[in-house]
């Protein structure tokens, strides 16, 4: 019996609309969330999501179905986002780590994290997340929301596993003071 990932790979190679619908249904929210974490903004994300799915269909033949679909999908989304950053100054983002991702410019509008916070702890994290560099936000969402392994994250971000681990530690270290001196 074919595994789920092999069915996805076959469906993408054949441009199977049923497979595409199922993928869009299953991953849409996660794609939006990943891109918001990466870019630190909500506007423009829908266009990038749309471009991502088009690229998924275009390059579907390069997904072999031997590994999980998520790292491949997020890698595609990341490339689309970086392309947008290069083409459109509104997304201008680079970081000190010199990998093409820089914090989003400050704005008077409430951050997407503030708008999306649904719990008291999330509200406390929202401000710090907005100022946290995208490369740290990105690994936090991939590790703790998407449950990707360090190796998988390393594939998505195109950095060594040790760098991914350091980014996770640093991301946690930046957000931890929000809960310092309190017990759960």
């Amino acid at each position: 019996m074919e595994s789920n990932t092999q069915q996805i790979a076959l469906g993408l190679r054949q441009g199977d609309v049923v497979v595409l619908e199922a993928l869009v249904e299953q991953y849409q929210y996660r794609l939006v969330r990943y891109l918001v974490y990466l870019l630190g903004r909500r506007d423009g994300v829908d266009d990038l999501v749309q471009e991502t799915w088009l690229r998924v269909l275009e390059r579907g033949g390069s997904y072999d179905g031997h590994s999980r679909f998520e790292p491949w999908l997020f890698r595609v989304a990341r490339n689309i986002a970086l392309d947008a950053i290069r083409k459109r100054p509104m997304f201008s983002l680079d970081s000190n780590e010199d990998d093409g991702v820089r914090p989003s410019p400050a704005s008077n509008e409430p951050s997407p994290f503030t708008l999306a916070a649904r719990t008291e702890d999330a509200v406390r994290l929202a401000r710090s997340l907005q100022t946290l560099e995208p490369v740290y936000r990105e690994v936090l969402v991939l590790r703790f929301q998407e449950d990707l392994s360090l190796q998988e994250i390393s594939i998505v971000v195109g950095a060594p596993v040790s760098t991914v681990a350091s980014r996770i530690y640093r991301g946690l270290a930046t957000l931890r003071p929000q809960f310092k001196g309190e017990t759960a």
Binding site: V32, A116, E120, A122, L125, L172
Partner: peptide
């Protein structure tokens, strides 16, 4: 922090 990251709904 990790639990708080799950408290966002976009």
């Amino acid at each position: 922090v990790i639990a708080g990251l799950g408290g966002f709904s976009f």
